[in-house]
Lab assay of single mutants.
Amino acid sequence: QPDICKDYKETGFCGFGDSCKFLHD
């Protein structure tokens, strides 16, 4: 199970976008 993207979880934004290896839940 992939890890949750910390940036996306906390801020709702991730610089990696769809290529981020972490989950954007």
Rank of each mutant, 00 (worst) to 15 (best):
F22E: 13
Y8M: 15
K9E: 12
G12W: 03
G12H: 07
C5D: 06
S19W: 01
K21E: 05
L23G: 11
E10I: 06
P2S: 14
K21C: 01
L23Y: 13
C20Y: 04
F22L: 06
S19M: 15
L23R: 12
C14V: 01
G17M: 15
D25T: 07
Y8D: 05
K6T: 07
D18Q: 03
D3F: 00
S19F: 15
C20F: 01
G15M: 15
D18I: 03
Y8I: 05
G17H: 11
F22G: 08
C20E: 05
P2A: 13
K21W: 08
F16Q: 13
G17F: 05
Y8P: 06
S19N: 08
K6M: 12
C5E: 03
C14G: 03
C20L: 03
G17I: 01
S19L: 00
C20D: 03
T11A: 11
P2L: 15
F13H: 12
F13Q: 09
S19P: 03
K21S: 04
C14S: 04
K9A: 14
K21P: 03
G12P: 03
C14W: 00
D3S: 09
D3K: 07
F22C: 05
K6G: 09
F22K: 13
C20S: 02
D7N: 01
Q1E: 01
C14T: 04
G15E: 10
D18Y: 01
P2Q: 15
C20G: 02
G15K: 12
K6W: 08
D3R: 05
I4T: 05
F13K: 11
E10G: 05
L23T: 06
C5A: 00
D3N: 08
F22T: 04
F13D: 08
T11C: 11
D7I: 11
C14F: 05
F22Y: 08
C20N: 00
G12T: 10
K9W: 09
D7C: 06
C5P: 01
H24E: 03
F13R: 13
D3L: 07
T11E: 12
K6S: 09
G12E: 13
C5V: 04
F22V: 05
G12M: 14
F16Y: 14
G17L: 02
F13T: 10
L23N: 09
C14R: 04
I4V: 07
G15D: 00
T11M: 15
P2C: 08
Y8K: 07
K6A: 15
I4D: 08
C5L: 00
T11D: 14
F22P: 03
E10T: 14
E10L: 06
L23S: 08
C20K: 00
E10D: 05
E10S: 07
Q1G: 08
D3E: 05
H24R: 02
F16I: 00
D18F: 00
K9Q: 13
D25R: 07
K6N: 07
C5G: 02
G17Y: 07
C20M: 06
F16V: 07
F13C: 10
G15T: 07
Q1L: 07
F13V: 11
E10M: 15
F22M: 15
T11R: 12
D3Q: 12
C20R: 01
E10P: 10
S19Q: 11
K6D: 13
L23M: 15
P2G: 15
F16H: 14
D7V: 13
F16K: 12
P2K: 15
K9Y: 08
D7R: 10
G12A: 11
D7P: 09
S19T: 10
K9P: 01
S19Y: 05
S19E: 12
D25Q: 11
